[in-house]
Amino acid sequence: MTTVSATAAPLVTGTPPEKKKKGGRLLKIAGFLVVTTGIAYAAAAVFNIHHNVFAAPTVTELFTFRPIFKIGSWDVTFPTLVMFGMTFVIIVLFLRGFGNAKVVPGKLQNVLEAGVFDFVRDQIALTAIGPEGAAWVPFLTAMFFWIFFNNFMSIFPIIQFPVTSRMAYPATLAIMVWFIYNGVGIKQNGFFKYFKNIMFPPGVPKAIYILLSPIELFSTVFVRPITLSVRLFANMVAGHLILGVLFVGSSVFIAGGALGKIGYVAPFGLSILLMGLELFVIFMQAFIFTILTAVYLGGAIHQEH
């Protein structure tokens, strides 16, 4: 035991005194709280925050919008404008990135190439569909970037509304994907053979087909678009709802006297952390939608596996 302690003696003797470090940290926390309280007072004065009874925002409050103007008989609301704006941004981004494509890429082209080729082609199309996946990369790229940019509006500063939380957008995407993967399967395998391959997969004892084939048919043809759209829709609704509740709670804290203006940091800080989580969920939902599209396409193209 004495030899161990002799070899384990530290080279630098003595640690800096703990008292000084602790005092510094306490001072930093106190300074932080003073700054945030000052911000709260300033915000309460500038924005006239005085409503100090908390009523959790309902779904209709958060997600319904008045029409801004009408085109024919269709209402154009705020999410519609954001969606068109994002589509325009994506088009401009890709035109500028790949417009004059050079062999040695510039900055934007480099980033977009990494996004399209390294990510969508290698991770999604080739992984899920195999070698024929390269033909589907444009479709999957458009889908991934469209969903990602429209989801991203959930945490983007001024807009702060996830466009894909209006059910029409995921539903339309899912119906489009449904037509495409069924269409590809029917075109490749013939109408009756396609459904026969779905309902009677090979390598299963014959007696189980009675139980298996309705379940398989139902799952492949009917349930897939529903789950695809509801997954994206519900994730975006849940994220927006929880951020809405926490931010409304923060404003109620700020409106609630001196203690509230100090303590609002808690729900506000939590909502900042949740925005980070929301970014992860945004990316993940776009990725999942795209890769499930690719998997369904792969399943329709290679039905025998």
């Binding site: 779904v59 789950t227 509801v230 519900a234 999942i288």
Partner: peptide, 23 residues
């Protein structure tokens, strides 16, 4: 990691159906 995230999203979707049906 890729397969994990796919599996996570598929399992999470079932909980989210409950969340949607809540409303």
């Amino acid at each position: 990691q890729t397969l994990m995230f796919i599996g996570f999203a598929l399992a999470e979707a079932l909980a989210l159906f409950g969340f949607v049906l809540f409303f």
